[in-house]
């Protein structure tokens, strides 16, 4: 494991998001703008160099599936970098609020985004759709913080709130609740899906759970001395599931068991 920090040219040490564009560059989102890494050196983009940055705090990055442009969710606006040119979409362009929390690329190009408690879609035509506030859906509790944009299927997005997975279709205002048999949790933090679109691993306020066939099994819970939320889950190409408990470093989920790595 090699580690790069500010000493190597990163503008700031807290990485909020990562993305790789088709030209091979690795992009790092930080609180002090975006850094482009060529494998040797970092090049910074922030309000000192690029007018589109009203605020340098970056929450999310996504690469456009159609044209390879880079989408950047910041604390004040949605930015797009294409062909060497930065553009910004803000509340004056239909963004429901200044703060863009999360991004997920759409198969048809553009991105799903999470902003001001709503889901929206941005394309090269601008903000093309905004949902109703998620917390006021008739079937849901009033307070539902969006935790993750999980995956796209057709023209629908599956996303995760504190109260569990939801689905919303492009153009329709309200989200529907995704039923999860045999599993309830006080607050969901992150999930992974398999190739068939089924939830297979869940990080919750209570611990970490996996699904085998249709049954959920707790891997680590508060009853076993596990007091950690797991807000980040990631599956690598070999199928290993990586998890990051909030303060306990990094570990792997292997054969239904949690193995700390670092």
């Amino acid at each position: 494991i090699h580690r790069w920090t500010g000493d190597d040219g990163l503008p700031q040490n807290r990485i909020s998001a990562l993305a790789q564009t088709p030209d091979g560059y690795l992009w790092c989102g930080t609180w002090f703008g975006v850094a482009r890494f060529d494998g040797v050196k970092f090049t910074s983009f922030d309000h000192n160099r690029v007018a589109a940055f009203r605020d340098d705090a970056v929450n999310a990055l996504a690469v456009d599936r159609i044209d390879g442009s880079l989408w950047v969710g910041t604390r004040d606006g949605l930015l797009r970098y294409a062909k060497g040119d930065w553009r910004r979409l803000g509340t004056g362009d239909g963004l429901p609020g200044p703060m863009v929390w999360r991004l997920l690329p759409r198969t048809k190009g553009g991105v799903w985004l999470d902003c001001a408690g709503r889901i929206a879609v941005a394309t090269d035509h601008g903000i093309v759709w905004v949902s109703a506030p998620i917390g006021t859906a008739p079937d849901g509790p009033a307070d539902e913080t969006i935790r993750q944009l999980v995956s796209e299927s057709g023209d629908a997005l599956t996303f995760l709130t504190d109260s569990g997975p939801k689905r919303i279709r492009f153009g329709e205002p309200m989200a529907s609740t995704q039923p999860v048999p045999d599993f309830s949790s006080p607050a969901w933090r992150a999930v992974l899906m398999d190739d068939e679109g089924r939830l297979v691993t869940a990080g919750t306020e209570e611990g970490l759970a996996t699904r085998v066939d249709s049954r959920w099994n707790w891997v680590a819970t508060s009853r076993q001395g596990w007091s950690e939320q797991t807000p980040v889950l990631h599956r690598d190409p070999t199928g290993v599931i990586w998890g990051a408990p909030r303060t306990k470093g990094l570990g792997q989920l292997r054969d239904g068991e949690w193995k700390p790595v670092a």
């Binding site: 790069w4 807290r14 990485i15 909020s16 990562l18 190409p237 990094l250």
Partner: peptide, 20 residues
Amino acid sequence: LTSALNDREGGLWLGTSDGL
């Protein structure tokens, strides 16, 4: 850990609260 990425060359990149 704040983020993770598989690059096209087979590398796994981890974004953390203290470096890449």
